[in-house]
């Protein structure tokens, strides 16, 4: 019996070494490449007709674009425009990673904490740099809540600083945990179905129940995949808004 978390194992497809570091091409790397190929190919092909009245695919591509554009506009405002391409890339990367991972026998790159944490840390550092460049020293007023009683300020500043530095952790763990939980749950039910089926006889018919559960869970996981991509992106927008406007 396989462990339900065995699906997350990194398997080397071909070994590669760069400056003494092991950068082998793995199943995770393969699905990162597939994510890029699939998302770019989908958008490029869908928008190719450039029709005045969009067809189904073009409509979907435009919808994704407008969805993120609206998110940036309503959460960051006009100053968010230059950051739109990177936020759109982020959304598409997470969305396609999550969705591709739901295909049986595929690999979910966003179920790796190192991947989600690297993304979140890059966002955190980037957003902090933007804030420092834009506001200079004034940026540190972000940690002093306005209108708080003077006596409470040192205490509140500590809380604000901690909550600020926890951002990359919560952002990455949220996505990672959701992917991990969903895929593990699917594997647990699949294992259950196999276990019941191997019991043989009349009891084997009972394996239909976990199979039905898997169908339901898969639907739920599609929802979670889309929702987590959305949550990841909208939180990025909010952090960017904080950096540009300091509350």
């Amino acid at each position: 019996m396989h462990s339900p978390v065995e699906q997350f194992t990194i398997k080397v497809l071909f070994a590669l070494n760069l400056f003494g570091y092991d950068v082998s091409f793995t199943n995770s790397s393969l699905f990162m490449v597939l994510t890029v190929l699939a998302s770019i190919a989908f958008l490029a092909l869908a928008i190719r007709p450039a029709a005045l009245i969009p067809g189904r695919m073009q409509g979907l591509a435009e919808m994704l674009y407008e969805f993120v554009a609206d998110m940036v506009r309503s959460n960051v405002g006009n100053e968010g425009r230059p950051y739109f391409p990177v936020i759109f890339t982020l959304f598409m990367f997470v969305l396609f990673s999550n969705l591709l991972g739901l295909i049986p026998y595929s690999y979910t790159t966003t179920s790796q904490i190192v991947v989600t944490f690297a993304l979140a840390l890059a966002i955190f550092v980037g957003v902090t740099l933007i804030a420092l460049v834009k506001h200079g020293f004034h940026f540190f007023s972000f940690f002093v809540p306005s209108g708080a009683p003077k006596a409470l300020i040192p205490f509140l500043v500590v809380i604000e600083v901690i909550s600020y530095f926890v951002r990359p952790v919560s952002l990455s763990v949220r996505l990672f945990a959701n992917m991990l939980a969903g895929h593990t749950m699917l594997k647990v039910f699949a294992g259950l179905a196999v276990m019941i089926a191997s019991a043989g006889g009349v009891a084997a018919a009972g394996s239909v129940l976990p199979l039905i559960a898997i169908i339901g869970l898969t639907g739920l996981e599609v929802l979670v995949a889309v929702l987590q991509a959305y949550v990841f992106t909208i939180l990025t927008c909010m952090y960017l808004n904080d950096a540009l406007h300091l509350h």
């Binding site: 990194i10 590669l16 760069l18 570091y21 092991d22 950068v23 082998s24 091409f25 793995t26 995770s28 790397s29 990162m32 490449v33 994510t35 890029v36 998302s39 770019i40 391409p85 990177v86 890339t89 598409m92 990367f93 790159t109 790796q112 190192v114 991947v115 690297a118 993304l119």
Partner: peptide, 17 residues
């Protein structure tokens, strides 16, 4: 497994961006 994942994440994300 982290270095390879970080490396490929940076490469693929940069190309995608």
């Amino acid at each position: 497994t982290w270095p390879t994942q970080l490396f490929w994440l940076v490469v693929t994300f940069a190309i995608m961006y």
